[in-house]
Design a protein around this nucleic acid. Structure first.
Lengths: 144, 144
DNA sequence: TCTTAAAAGGATAAAAATGTCCGAAATAGA
DNA sequence: TCTATTTCGGACATTTTTATCCTTTTAAGA
């Protein structure tokens, strides 16, 4: 569904969100350890997320990654997904046809529309904060 | 959502189904032309679909691909997708966690479940025949 | 100012997906 | 039986994704 990069991106952001809610800044190593991902690859993804204003970073000693109150309040899953994978998942045609639309639909356009719209709605309405809360409460998990 | 191979596979199967409904067998070249796909790559995918008993092939002059009445009656989109991409799309965890389940869910397990179940239901209930009918009626398209 | 810790960013490597080529096998028809 | 046509299947090539390594930049603290 999502690329590996996007999966790591979501997991990393959720970990950062959880720690930021507790007032803690986290390092790259910390994140990679918490979500069980390759360190250097995770670094590249975090860079993308910083550029996309999903997370915030600070260099130097005691540096690391965090989310500002503004980011914690506003960031939705859709922001992470479109920053890494783009919006083809919920905007593109299910059969990869460039010119597929309501007027000239592919054979599964209608069937797909339901699924795609549901996915889009879910990504756009689900906030990172609410998911991070579930982690803190020990109800959900980011590895194994 | 699906791999390129799977997109070609679905499009090819729909073209073959449509032609089979009219009593016509189609060649590889014919298929690749109709769905606008690379010929040799399409050949590989068709082989997979023959092995998966989604379509039927005949070698030699006047050979080609077709669907038997039995296949036309039974094949659903889910058969094509699982033959080419496997069932990870609607069975796997959205965040790529191997051990994600109801008891130990990932943070977006519940939100994802809805989307995934809807996708699974759609793929398992949509028959290739019904989609091919839309093509014949000129209501839907397989390229541009 | 110097050292140290951390992210940033460029170059490269490995793996997977996508795509191509060509000879082998099968089969219809002359 | 011979030839032409078509799928089959193996090997190879290209592109994209995933992953690693190393140097540079930034900033804190001694």
């Amino acid at each position: 569904m999502f690329s590996k990069a996007c999966e790591y991106g979501i997991r990393a952001t959720l970990h950062i969100a959880r720690q930021s809610q507790g007032g803690h800044r986290v390092s790259l190593k910390d994140i990679a350890g918490a979500i069980d991902s390759p360190v250097a690859f995770t670094a590249k993804i975090l860079q993308q997320l910083v550029h996309a204003n999903v997370i915030h970073s600070l260099k130097g000693p005691h540096g690391g990654f965090e989310m500002t109150p503004h980011q914690l309040h506003n960031v939705r899953l859709s922001h992470i997904v479109s920053a890494i994978d783009g919006d083809q998942i919920y905007r593109g045609c299910g059969l990869g046809l460039k010119a597929c639309n309501e007027l000239k639909p592919c054979p599964l356009h209608d069937q797909f529309k339901d699924v795609r719209d549901k996915l889009q709605l879910m990504l756009e309405t689900t906030s990172v904060s609410e998911l991070a809360a579930g982690l803190t409460e020990g109800l959900t998990f980011l590895k194994q």
